[in-house]
Simulated assay, not measured.
Amino acid sequence: MDNKQLFHHRLATLTAQLAGRPLDAGLERWLNTAYGPDSSGYADLRHSCLAGVAEGWLCALEGGGIRYGRVFKADDALHRFSVDVVDMQDIAGPHHTHPQGEIDLILPLDAGTATFDGRPAGWCVYPPGSAHRPTVAQGRALVLYLLPEGQIQFTKS
């Protein structure tokens, strides 16, 4: 199994546990307990993201100082979640809304001090209908986005 297939497998295992659950503070607490920064699941996902960036199939596009890319479309194997990963350093991304919510895995790089929307390494969950301007501060981070049905709506500026 190559690294991209392994990444898909790891995500399918995770999304099986997310399917049908409400995207709320309870899910965020569960993710940070079961898949938090000190867990093997977090380490595995981090390893897959770093391998994907190194091999060029992850964060292959660039715009506005942000490297990004949808690595997997929403499919049945991923329980209808799409998977995007961005590579950001001390920058705010484009404002957008989450029609069905968004689940984010924050992977600080370098010294590990980077935050995403003010949060350190770990998970954050945005409920359906929420919106934000994703911001990485205090360094560089990869952020993995799980979007139900791949739904995201960028706000026109």
Rank of each mutant, 00 (worst) to 15 (best):
P99T: 08
G93T: 05
E102I: 08
A121Y: 05
D87N: 11
I106H: 04
H95F: 04
H96V: 12
Y126F: 14
H95P: 01
G122Q: 10
G112S: 10
H95E: 09
I103A: 03
G101N: 09
D110T: 11
H96L: 13
Y126S: 13
Q89N: 11
I103C: 02
G101D: 04
G118R: 13
H98T: 03
R119L: 07
G122Y: 06
Q89K: 15
D104Q: 15
G112R: 09
G118E: 01
L109M: 15
F116M: 03
T115C: 07
G112L: 09
W123S: 01
H95G: 00
I91R: 11
D117H: 13
F116D: 00
T113N: 13
D117P: 06
L107W: 00
H95D: 02
G101I: 12
Q89C: 15
Y126M: 10
P99C: 07
T113W: 07
Q100H: 13
P94F: 14
V86N: 01
P99V: 07
C124Q: 14
H95V: 07
V125K: 00
V125A: 02
Y126K: 14
T97D: 05
R119F: 04
G93K: 08
C124F: 01
D104W: 05
P108W: 06
G118N: 08
C124K: 11
P108T: 04
P99F: 09
C124G: 03
R119I: 04
V86D: 00
H96N: 12
I91A: 04
M88T: 07
A114G: 04
Y126A: 07
D117Y: 07
W123R: 07
H95A: 11
T115V: 09
R119V: 06
H98Y: 09
G112T: 11
G93H: 11
D87T: 02
D87R: 10
D90E: 12
T115N: 01
A92D: 02
V125M: 06
V86P: 00
G118Q: 07
P108I: 07
P108S: 05
P94C: 08
R119N: 13
D90R: 06
P127Q: 03
H95T: 14
H95W: 12
L105N: 00
Y126W: 14
A121M: 09
F116C: 02
D87K: 10
R119Q: 13
Q100W: 02
W123D: 00
Q89I: 13
V86F: 14
D87V: 03
H95R: 15
A92F: 07
T113I: 08
R119C: 06
L109P: 04
I106S: 04
P94M: 14
T115L: 11
D90Q: 05
M88H: 06
W123M: 03
